[in-house]
Design a protein around this nucleic acid. Structure first.
Lengths: 365, 365
DNA sequence: CGCAAAAATGACACCGATGTCATAAAATGC
DNA sequence: GCATTTTATGACATCGGTGTCATTTTTGCG
């Protein structure tokens, strides 16, 4: 591989002059520049960042750690899809700012994080990002002061700068939108109770009801997802939850699901019970997981968790940390828009629960 | 950041001795080693790979280029999901071999590849990978001889070493499995005709029919996907295709879809037409896109395109190239297993088409 | 035309590791 | 006990760039 000395010799100038041509940090005579550029081109010279790094202490590298790429190490399952959007956005923003992205994957093993951070340090990354696979608290290994680190989609107790989804507001906006379409009896089949997002989103759900003067009814708010990966059990849980809310004295006219994936599963279950979406019952998801939301028939109304925006925000935060600016001490909350599709039908005010729907044609499963 | 000189001073030895302790490339006295290790620990010293790279010309970096992370730059759509499995596997294999992975995303713009490769060269990567978002031919920009490059999920005309999915064999195995369950009239609603995979898979479909002595009937083999991203149009296309095959004189007892996503869409359409899966009609996908296949109700029988295995294979190929070994001149074909789930029902030999199914209860949409 | 300021270029040290070679200290053999 | 390995350590150059400062050439202007 050609070096700057080879170029200097070929162009018959000093290495420093070649350096100036490359970096443009001092004026170079036109004729000289041409000679140098010709030499660079003919030798196919590409400068070595390793050498540059030594002198300038700027590696042009940022490290990103994620368990996102795969949670289930030995299968082709994808737990972490949305988080990849974060990764992708981070990559793009950094690239636009002349940085390259080193990616490591914990493979689900939290204890590997320390090693990965060390490897990044060996590469003298200028900053690091840690991306959570879902909104949660994380425990990071101790790292030296002055490490530039931003958390995305997760937070820690040490107050490391972080970017988080505004689950509460997103859910509130979605439920408000349903209410605006005339729905007054709205069930919520949430994610597992032991994740942060569930609490926040349930608060958002209640916020929206309260704002509309609708009483909160715990009977139609049920967790319908575990974080186990047994699909059979998940289906059963969801089936039971749907059973329960539909057997209520006042069955809902709309159901919000904890995410688009559960909604997808629910489509099949509802149809098996003879309920048509959206004619008999309106359905909303969460995440705007377009692979699902746009592919489902009918297409799914949902709310976008702003992964893309979070990625951009986190990358910019890191860039400003690298520039030496101060980090915000509060988590940065980001929210996304409601995505209106075909799975929700307006209801006249006279319809207060599903039994009031005249056209309802129940069929046995 | 502490340097090897700081450590040497603190331990009162020469820098070279510190280097020996770190790398273990020459014997060091026990007492000296302890002193040095104590100094390293107390200073929090981490060696700089940039400096090491300069001397040894081994950066420990591998660059990976993909359009995979996102095909649709301005949306949250995910065209490329399976390819991420490749990326993830590559990452893991490389990490196990002490290499770090630099990732860049073309954002769908093929012309950026040259820039990305240049950036990788600046970082003095020891090898590069290019991951296609689906099985296709690619045009790479010219790169210097001696560049260690492996293509995954794509190939070029220059005979660059590559790893490809064995579409033909996968489809053949899937159709054979259907035939083994007694299906003799099997429709194939394929992907768009202008991608390589469609031709290969159709050949696989025909291979299986031929092996079973079933005549190939072009009337029930229809492309049912474009690569446009208008979901509305895609649904229409699929609707029409299903309409056509079900209006055939001998409607099939099973349908193979070009991928799991189309199958997902088809579930809704079939149900709208009053056809139950799998009671009335059996359905198979392609990809083993578990997010879909396992979430659908009933779960989808499909065939796994071996993205994980391809990632592993590609990474190992690159590692041996880096070691100086010769690359295979032929594309490496990798196939995956049929994933048997609930969307296919066995048919007795007497049932040659859907009209023979006694229990069939058609309903109007 | 002469001289100061600006532009263009080069010499040299240095960033932080490691390879080479030399040398000092300890172990071994007879 | 002395020569001879073997083991342990250090001095120094080097990798490929850039920062600093010095020097030469050109330009501008009274």
């Amino acid at each position: 591989m050609a070096t700057i000395y080879d170029v200097a010799k070929a162009a018959n100038v000093s290495p420093k002059t070649v350096s100036r041509v490359i970096n443009g940090d001092a004026p170079v005579g036109k004729k000289t520049r041409d000679k140098v550029e010709a030499a660079i081109a003919s030798l196919g010279y590409v400068p070595s960042l390793a050498a540059r790094t030594m002198r300038s202490n700027r590696s042009g590298l940022v490290g990103l750690i994620t368990g996102a790429i795969s949670l289930a190490p030995d299968s082709s399952e994808f737990g972490g899809l949305p988080d990849l959007i974060i990764v992708q956005r981070v990559q793009r923003v950094l690239e636009d700012n002349g940085m390259s992205l080193l990616i490591s994957d914990t493979g689900g093993k939290q204890e590997r994080v320390a090693d990965l951070m060390r490897t990044f340090t060996e590469h003298r990354v200028e900053g690091m990002l840690y991306v959570g696979d879902y909104h949660k608290r994380v425990d990071l290994p101790p790292f030296p002061d002055g490490t530039k680190l931003v958390l995305a989609n997760c937070y820690d107790d040490a107050g490391t700068p972080c970017v988080l989804p505004h689950d509460r507001l997103c859910q509130k906006m979605l439920v408000e939108a349903l209410i605006a379409k005339g729905h007054r009896r709205i069930a919520y089949l949430s994610l597992s109770n032991d994740i942060d997002a569930t609490r926040l989103r349930t608060e958002g759900y209640r916020d929206a009801l309260e704002a509309a003067g609708i009483a909160f009814d715990p009977d139609i708010v049920i967790p319908a997802d575990t974080r186990m990966s047994d699909p059979q059990a998940e289906v059963q849980l969801l089936w039971d939850a749907i059973e329960r809310i539909m057997a209520d004295d006042h069955p809902p006219t709309a159901i919000c699901f904890g995410n688009d994936r559960i909604a997808l599963r629910a489509y099949g279950i509802l149809r098996s019970r003879g309920l048509r979406v959206p004619d008999d019952i309106s359905v909303a998801g969460f995440d705007n997981h377009r692979l699902i939301a746009e592919t489902l028939y009918p297409q799914l109304t949902t709310v976008e968790l702003p992964y893309a925006a979070m990625g951009v925000r986190a990358a910019h935060m890191l860039l400003s940390l690298i520039k030496g600016e101060e980090a915000p001490s509060e988590p940065q909350l980001v929210s996304g828009p409601v995505c209106w599709r075909d799975s929700v039908l307006p209801r006249p005010a006279s319809v207060t629960n599903i039994n009031d729907i005249a056209s309802l044609g129940r069929k046995s499963s």
